[in-house]
Each structure stands twice: as structure tokens, then as C-alpha cells.
């Protein structure tokens, strides 16, 4: 069923991906599965950066791991360069991993503590290009270290000797050394201080520009992804709420949840802060395992109707993007009418 890759084909195509976790059984039968990711579809063009934004429990990290097949999806397909990953054997998948790499949130924890930087960065090379000589490997490691802003002299040091920002550069170097087509960055800067965060974000922006790599950038922080996204996907309880071009979503969010999320981001602006309206939500986060017919956001949505609670809105085109809401673009209380 796989089509030949052509110019119009996206690098990554995710269709109807669901990742559910079994939660064991109670005395009265199996407990409902946890629907961490529910029926998510999107594609990613070559050289494009798609940011997946959601709060804790939205399933964004699970989605990343489902795409990379570090978790086995319950349903759905993932095509990377026209190849369906679910159809690959274990060994084929292992080989295919050189095209897709992951960057972690906790930079130091993601580096093997008893191995040197050189060993860490060269492991992917050893794995996928065992024919390389030691000298060639060292050369490649030195190149990539320089490219991410590390001195090759640091190659014999151990992860615990680095600060968070430097460790994240090592993690990025390890991910880039195989020259992957797809880079999945799972909250790559949220463990870093602001001043270091900016360095790493800039590095990722440079990588994107110079290596034409496609990136899935996962974050809970709308201001962080603002500077790096081409497109934006807003996830809530495992489902897509809104997906489209980043700029237009930032300027004119259409889904109530996106609006709430944007309004809640603190601004660095003291004057007029009293008047700025932040839309409050209750804490009634429904359990992701609960069976629900309607929109997952309905229980907290300030403008939800009985229809919202009964029927899940389909992701439909609206104002140049896709929104999963029965009333896309609806104005919330206190919001300026557009």
C-alpha cells in the first residue's frame, strides 16, 4: 500500500494513531484502557518544524514515542519517507532508526553515566556504520561536536562533568551524527535555565536551517515553540484540538482551548496587566481513561453546550487550518470581538 515517495509526499505521515495503555483488571473485569493518544493524524513536510503543544497529561510525549515506535501504537500507521514503520520487522525497524532520532528533556539523564562523550556520540555510528574505522569515527565525532558548539577536547569527559546546557548539546550531537531525516525533540529546553534555553533553541533553529531536517518539537510552553515552529498542533487529552500554521494560530486562535492556553501565558508587560484577561479553567480534568462521547475539553470549556458533551467534533477546515470544535472561532467571555 505504500506509495512511492514523490515531491508532494510528506516526509512523515501519521494517520489515525492511537496509543492506549492497558490498566490491568479489577475484580469486576478489565479496567478501561488509558487513551493517551487518540486518533491523531498529521503530516510533516521536509525541512518543516511542527510543534506539538499540550499540558501535562495531553499525551504529547506518548505521541512522540508512538511515532518513533518506541511504543507500539494500538491503532494507526506512521509512514516515514513512504515506508510504513508498522510493517517492518524488528531488525528492519532497528536499521530504520538511523533516519529518526530523539532528543530528551533531561539532558544529563539521557546520557549513559559511565561512558565518555566520545563513546556516547559514536555509539550510533558504531551501530549503523560498523565498517567505519576508528579514525573516521573520531573525525565524525569531532565534526559534530564542533557543529553543536562543543570543543572536541571535551571528548574524554563524562556526562556528570557537564552543565545542563552542554549536556543537551551532547544529546543533540548524538542525534545528529547519523544525519537523520526526522528529529523528534521532546521538551528539549524545559529543564534548562532561560539563558541556556535560548542558546539551545538557537542551535536547533540553526540545525533546522542548515541541515534541512524535519522536526517534531514537543513542548508545554507556547512561548518556547513560538520561535521555532512552522506549524502548530494543539493536543488535549490525546486528541488534536487545532492544527495549522503557527503564525496564524498565534495571531487568531480558533479553538477555545487554544485561546485559553494563549491567554494564560504570562506576558512581560506590567502596564495594563490588570485589564488583561486570563480565562480561568476549573481543575476538572477528566480522566483520560473515562469513556466519553463528546469533546475532551467540554468539561472545562467556558462555552461548551450539550452538543459538545454528547458528540466529538470532527477536525474540520476553518480559516486556513483545522479545528476540532463545534463552534470554531467562537468568542470567549472577556475576549475582544474580532
Amino acid at each position: 500500500m505504500s506509495e512511492a515517495p514523490s515531491k508532494t509526499n510528506p516526509l512523515l505521515k501519521v494517520s489515525n494513531l492511537s496509543v492506549h495503555f492497558k490498566q490491568g483488571r479489577t475484580l469486576f473485569g478489565p479496567r478501561p484502557a488509558l487513551r493517551a493518544v487518540d486518533d491523531v493524524s498529521f503530516d510533516l513536510a521536509e525541512g518543516e518544524t511542527l510543534s506539538i503543544v499540550g499540558e501535562s497529561g495531553s499525551g504529547k510525549s506518548t505521541l512522540a514515542r508512538g511515532v518513533l515506535r518506541l511504543l507500539k501504537p494500538t491503532k494507526g500507521q506512521v509512514w516515514l519517507e513512504g515506508q510504513e514503520l508498522g510493517g517492518l520487522s524488528g531488525e528492519q525497524l532497528r536499521k530504520a532508526r538511523r533516519h529518526m532520532q530523539l532528543i530528551f528533556q533531561d539532558p544529563i539523564a539521557s546520557l549513559s553515566p559511565r561512558r565518555t562523550v566520545e563513546q556516547i556520540i559514536s555509539e550510533p555510528l558504531q551501530t549503523h556504520y560498523p565498517q567505519l574505522s576508528g579514525a573516521e569515527r573520531r573525525e565524525k565525532v569531532a565534526d559534530i561536536m564542533r557543529a553543536v558548539g562543543l570543543l572536541p577536547d571535551m571528548r574524554n569527559r563524562y556526562p556528570h562533568e557537564f552543565s545542563g546546557g552542554q549536556a543537551q548539546r551532547i544529546g543533540i550531537a548524538r542525534a545528529l551524527v547519523l544525519e537523520p531525516r526526522l528529529l523528534v525533540a521532546d521538551e528539549p529546553v524545559s529543564a534548562l535555565d532561560v539563558s541556556i534555553q535560548a542558546q539551545v533553541l538557537n542551535l536547533l533553529a540553526d540545525i533546522k536551517q542548515e541541515r534541512k531536517v524535519s522536526m517534531l518539537f514537543i513542548s508545554h510552553d507556547l512561548s518556547v515553540v513560538h520561535h521555532i515552529s512552522d506549524r502548530l498542533l494543539v493536543l488535549y487529552l490525546g486528541q488534536v484540538m487545532e492544527i495549522g500554521h503557527a503564525k496564524s494560530i498565534y495571531e487568531r486562535p480558533q479553538h477555545p482551548y487554544t485561546k485559553v492556553l494563549l491567554s494564560a501565558v504570562p506576558r512581560m508587560q506590567v502596564v495594563g496587566r490588570e485589564k488583561r484577561r486570563r480565562i480561568h479553567l476549573n481543575d476538572d480534568l477528566p480522566s483520560p481513561s473515562a469513556k466519553r462521547a463528546g469533546c475532551p475539553f467540554a468539561s472545562r470549556c467556558p462555552v461548551a453546550t450539550s452538543q459538545c458533551k454528547a458528540e466529538m467534533p470532527k477536525l474540520t477546515d476553518f480559516e486556513g487550518r483545522q479545528v476540532a470544535c463545534h463552534f470554531p472561532g467562537i468568542a470567549l467571555e472577556g475576549e475582544k470581538a474580532a
Binding site: V224, A246, R267
Partner: peptide
């Protein structure tokens, strides 16, 4: 500091 309100 990245901002949502800045020009992306």
C-alpha cells in the same frame, strides 16, 4: 526569554 507576543 521567548515570548508569545513577540514577532516570530
Amino acid at each position: 526569554t521567548p515570548r508569545v507576543e513577540a514577532d516570530a
